[in-house]
Design a binder for these strands. Structure first.
Lengths: 214, 214
DNA sequence: AGTACTACTTGACAATGTCAAGAGAAAGGG
DNA sequence: CCCTTTCTCTTGACATTGTCAAGTAGTACT
């Protein structure tokens, strides 16, 4: 049995990660500093190195966490009631945007090849693969194709691109000044989602994919 | 008259910028260092400060250049013959992807709020606005709406999201390992473009927007 | 000739990432 | 009980970075 020595095991690791994430949320990944993170976690400047190999190790851990959460979000969309209420595409888009908004610190790291660490950290890479597989399953299920079809892949990539572009442009893009308030931006995003989902339904109908659902 | 003092005026500025861009292309914006850039440009470590206020000034100049080039690309799509050969949406998507591929150094900076400097550097911001205006015009013209309609805006944002997501995912995203070769990726991207363009044409037809063109 | 300006250079400093070397507590075995 | 190992964290040191301050060589203008 393990006795806790006044703090839970991994407490510092969590503190460091959370400090890093909140730092990324407020100032972007660019200005994440090992020492600032340590300071905010209330530990010495070398403590983070016990849990992460180096700065890129922190990024890798964050993107791993992020992709795991994203895979989870995809799974939830499938099991939630949300999927049936309106079009599945709309549910997917909305879920993706919500994920990005709620995990913006993760989101900013996950899709940046230079810092995500996906190529050098296999654990993180595997989580990314899982998330993609989950997306493929989701698309295949709602669209009625088997997941390994070329068509299903193309369809999934198209949906992902649409959702991802929307999230990126609205959360970190050069649009902020164009729309006045945050509320306007949200309405605008909803309108785009509506339009995109409508187009998906048109395409699905034309392809004869479970048109009953739409 | 101005005598050239052995090198053209602004030569160093260009050298610095190019060094920065090529550094970003190979290693990402994260690892752009003022001193390394100076080293590659063959000047002292402070020379860049004569042309750029600080590190973020270099990023701002790059995103300014990038948005100017993007606006140009949008204009070309409208005047080129390309627009008439196939669907306008396909031409737009292809142009956007080509722009991203050919100016990947710029592209990686332009859409990152934390380093693009759009909020703090008005010149860069203006170029971004121009590019967006050009996109709006392009969409409005091909779609037959006036550019200041709410519908045209939503449509433009949808198209931009689709194109941007595609570019981001394929150029810097976690997809690399999924597709085998670069050639596969290109084919995959083309398939997605084809699908997306087809959906756009369906939507346009349903909305009664210049269906003759499609 | 002298003054001002341009386009740099050299020097210095605080902050950062990271390596090396501990230090202290806990755990386990004898 | 002591001894050793391991785990978790700290202190110290060093090269490198961004940036401020000050200098300097050449050109332009009066």
């Amino acid at each position: 049995m393990k006795k806790v020595p006044h703090e839970q095991h991994g407490d510092v690791r969590r503190l460091v990660l959370d400090a890093a994430i909140s730092l990324i949320e407020s100032d972007g990944p660019e200005s994440l500093s090992m020492r600032e993170v340590a300071r905010r976690a209330g530990v010495s400047h070398q403590a983070p190195y016990h849990y992460f190999k180096d700065r890129s190790g922190i990024f890798a851990a964050i993107s791993q966490e992020g992709f795991a959460a994203l895979a989870n979000a995809f799974r939830q969309v499938q099991t939630d009631g949300t999927l049936d209420t309106t079009s599945p595409a709309k549910a997917g888009f909305t879920a993706y945007l919500r994920f990005a908004r709620e995990h913006i610190g993760h989101f900013r790291v996950m899709f940046r090849a230079d810092i995500s660490g996906l190529s050098s950290h296999p654990e993180a890479h595997e989580c990314a693969e899982d998330a993609f597989t989950e997306l493929l399953n989701m698309v295949a299920r709602t669209v009625g194709h088997s997941a390994d079809t070329q068509d299903a892949l193309t369809f999934a990539l198209m949906l992902w691109s649409q959702a991802h572009g929307l999230a990126t442009l609205f959360l970190d893009g050069p649009l902020e000044s164009r729309m006045g308030s945050r509320l306007d931006a949200e309405k605008q995003a909803d309108a785009v989602i509506e339009l995109a989902a409508h187009m998906v339904s048109l395409e699905a109908r034309e392809q004869g994919l479970i048109p009953a659902r739409y």
